[in-house]
């Protein structure tokens, strides 16, 4: 089963990973603020759908996403 780990304190909430996740498993967590003052992205994968395609991590400009497979 694949999953991603998000370093929330590096995330700037730009939304590029959300745009590139074809399964829509990433969302902006509106009620959370990180040390930089942004709403970070959260990984929501209740049914284990993530395939580990790495698109989110490839497009993340801040290297905040790690992919495990």
């Amino acid at each position: 089963m694949a999953y991603v780990k998000i370093n929330k304190d590096r995330c700037k909430g730009c939304g590029l990973c959300i745009q590139n996740c074809k399964l829509a498993l990433l969302v902006i967590v509106e009620d959370e603020l990180n040390v930089l003052g942004y709403h970070p992205v959260g990984f929501v994968d209740g049914e284990g759908e993530c395939k580990g395609c790495k698109f989110c991590a490839e497009t993340c400009p801040d290297c905040a996403i790690e992919v495990y497979k």
Partner: peptide
């Protein structure tokens, strides 16, 4: 156990 397949490059 899932292995890390993508992360921060070593030189970064």
């Amino acid at each position: 156990k899932p292995k890390k397949v993508y992360g921060r490059p070593e030189s970064l």
